Amino acid sequence: MTATEQAAAPHTVPGMHRQDAARVAEILQERLHSLNDLALTLKHVHWNVVGPHFIAVHEMLDPQVDAVREMTDTTAERIATLGGVPVGTPGAIVAGRTWDDYGVGRADAVAHLGALDLVYAGVIEDHRAAMKATDDLDLVTQDMLIGQLARLEQFQWFVRAHLESGGGRLSTSGARTLEEAAERAERAAGGSDGSGGSNG
């Protein structure tokens, strides 16, 4: 039994089995790590975009950061409501992460958006899996996840609008890594300085 499990409350919300609550809290802890990481990544991009689309992307991202931070708070409070212990320390995020760190530094705005498209895709896929997993466990939590998904999918749409051709093709289509997505997006946009735009 981990320190977190030992510190968990011996009770949960009325009408819910403690075992089910513990499972939901476990699912939500994974989502909390993901959302915390996403908020930090969005802020990193906000600080590091350059090029002709700088101001549009720079200003587009701050409301997304704020919304994702609100999601982290709601998620953490739901874990606590269920009797769990939300963990949001940097070490816990890194230890619980099943995805690679964001590797694009100072780069053209379109390159960052290409990488962000893949970031959002991963977060959304995992959020949808969590939504399905809570179907028989806790509809209140599922409702929270559905609301978050609506916002996350909208944010990805905002990102993809910069990457989509008139015919609906995404410049990042088929990319498997963040760096590859960034390079494809920048190449499709014509590049800003021919340097590839990412730091690895």
Score class of each variant (00 low, 15 high):
136 D>L: 09
101 D>E: 07
136 D>P: 00
186 E>W: 05
185 A>S: 06
156 Q>S: 04
123 V>G: 08
120 Y>F: 15
189 A>E: 04
144 M>C: 12
141 T>W: 02
118 L>S: 00
116 L>W: 09
111 A>R: 07
159 V>S: 11
150 A>M: 15
111 A>D: 01
138 D>E: 14
188 A>I: 09
131 M>Q: 07
131 M>G: 08
186 E>Q: 04
166 G>E: 15
132 K>S: 10
151 R>A: 15
103 G>K: 05
128 R>V: 00
109 A>N: 08
165 S>R: 12
167 G>H: 15
181 A>G: 13
120 Y>L: 00
190 G>W: 03
116 L>N: 04
120 Y>M: 09
156 Q>K: 15
162 H>N: 12
178 L>C: 02
97 R>H: 04
130 A>Q: 04
166 G>Q: 13
181 A>R: 05
176 R>P: 10
103 G>C: 09
160 R>W: 01
166 G>V: 14
126 D>K: 02
138 D>W: 02
148 Q>D: 14
178 L>V: 10
116 L>Y: 00
106 R>E: 05
181 A>L: 08
180 E>M: 07
190 G>N: 05
117 D>V: 03
122 G>M: 06
110 V>G: 00
161 A>R: 09
98 T>D: 01
150 A>W: 15
107 A>T: 01
164 E>W: 11
136 D>R: 15
183 E>R: 04
111 A>V: 09
156 Q>P: 06
122 G>P: 08
176 R>H: 13
98 T>H: 02
185 A>K: 12
170 L>Y: 02
170 L>G: 09
116 L>S: 06
182 A>F: 00
120 Y>P: 05
176 R>N: 13
111 A>I: 08
140 V>T: 15
126 D>T: 10
129 A>P: 02
113 L>M: 06
177 T>C: 13
185 A>C: 03
183 E>Q: 00
146 I>N: 03
101 D>N: 06
151 R>G: 13
135 D>N: 13
101 D>A: 05
187 R>Y: 00
141 T>H: 05
130 A>Y: 01
119 V>L: 10
143 D>V: 12
99 W>T: 07
179 E>W: 02
116 L>H: 07
171 S>K: 03
183 E>I: 00
127 H>N: 00
133 A>F: 09
99 W>M: 05
94 V>G: 03
111 A>E: 03
98 T>M: 03
168 G>F: 08
132 K>F: 02
108 D>N: 11
120 Y>V: 11
126 D>R: 05
134 T>H: 10
175 A>N: 11
96 G>N: 09
186 E>S: 01
110 V>E: 04
